[in-house]
């Protein structure tokens, strides 16, 4: 249960006290469940209910079509369906009794006859007022949120300045960093493209070098390339649907963390081999003996 704020409790208690003719303290105590709730012995005085004319056409009309001011007689052409409807409005009356907040509503709106003390739903209810009353209680809808809040309330801070300021600073920092390295590191530009001169080795961009290294272990003619790649991509996309463990605490998902760390280590190793340890003919070379074949960083590592 949610904690109801004190002032709301008090308001409800006052309304209940007024409706039942008891003291506010008593009403409060009842609502807290400390004493037995008071039963309504006499009917609230407005509820002098006289039947209403109900016009029933071929299809039983919704309850809302019931006429407001009505002569005392009931003219029902087809009795059973409306009766059923009346029955349906009846149970909320029981709720009215139990929900303190609605207790005042009982007074204003001539509700269906209150629940008999044996708790049975009355089968026949005269629910239309004869005079004076301009409102009717059609039904009492239990107060229920349309959307169920599923998350606990969380500690929040204002986006400005607590998020936007760090964002702005990191944007500035990254721009500064980029300008800095761009000023000191020249991007490579080799000789003009020439389809007739194949460099040896010919390397893919660095983020594909792990893959190129991996593929050098088998004959691509046999294994294919795109198919394993597509399967790999699909597998990545499927991760959230495969890992059904709901925990996000690292200590409760050791297996997943281990797998990803293996993946990182493997991809990193393969890429490093492809970048640093592969020379002409994709043969193994040692960067400190034979040099490095990696033109992306031409300007960084000067080797001869």
């Amino acid at each position: 249960m949610v904690d109801i704020p004190e002032h709301l409790l008090l308001k409800t208690a006052e309304a209940r006290a007024k409706a039942l003719g008891i003291s506010v303290e008593q009403a409060l105590a009842e609502m807290r469940g400390e004493v037995q709730p008071t039963k309504i012995e006499k009917e609230p005085d407005v509820i002098e209910v006289t039947p209403i004319e109900v016009e029933v056409k071929e299809t039983p009309p919704p309850a809302a079509e019931v006429k407001e001011t009505a002569p005392p007689a009931v003219e029902v052409k087809e009795t059973p369906p409306p009766a059923a409807e009346v029955k349906e409005t009846a149970p909320p009356a029981a709720e009215v009794k139990e929900t303190p907040a609605a207790a005042s509503a009982v007074k204003e709106a001539p509700a269906p006859a209150p629940e008999k003390s044996n708790g049975q739903v009355p089968t026949e209810v005269d629910f239309a007022p004869e005079t004076k009353v301009t409102q009717r209680l059609l039904t009492v809808v239990k107060a229920k949120p349309i959307q169920k809040p599923t998350s606990e309330p969380v500690d929040k801070v204002n986006t400005w300045p607590h998020l936007m300021l760090p964002e702005f600073i990191s944007l500035m920092a990254m721009t500064a960093f980029l300008i800095f390295i761009s000023a000191i590191l020249q991007a490579p530009l080799l000789e003009e493209a020439n389809p007739n001169i194949t460099p040896n080795p010919a390397k893919a961009p660095w983020y594909f070098l792990g893959l190129q290294e991996l593929l050098s272990y088998w004959d691509p003619q046999i294994a294919g390339v795109m198919i394993p790649l597509l399967i790999g991509v699909a597998a990545f996309m499927a991760i959230p649907y495969i890992d059904r463990n709901k925990e996000n605490k690292p200590s409760k998902r050791k297996y997943a963390i281990m797998l990803w760390t293996f993946f990182l280590a493997g991809a990193g190793t393969l890429s490093l081999i492809g970048i640093l340890f592969r020379g002409p003919g994709w043969n193994w070379t040692y960067p400190w003996i034979d040099g490095v074949w990696f033109d992306d960083l031409l300007d960084w590592v000067h080797f001869e």
Binding site: P188, L189, L190, E191, E192, A193, N194, P195, I197, T198, P199, A202, K203, A204, P205, F208, L211, Q212, L215, P220, Q221, A223, G224, V225, M226, I227, D295, D296
Partner: peptide, 24 residues
């Protein structure tokens, strides 16, 4: 990667494109 149209560009892309060529 291809746009500078130097040896690095054309051959890196050739390698990548050839890999795609091995699609069954």
């Amino acid at each position: 990667y291809l746009l500078p149209w130097d040896q690095l560009a054309i051959w890196a892309v050739t390698v990548g494109g050839n890999m795609a060529g091995y699609t069954p």
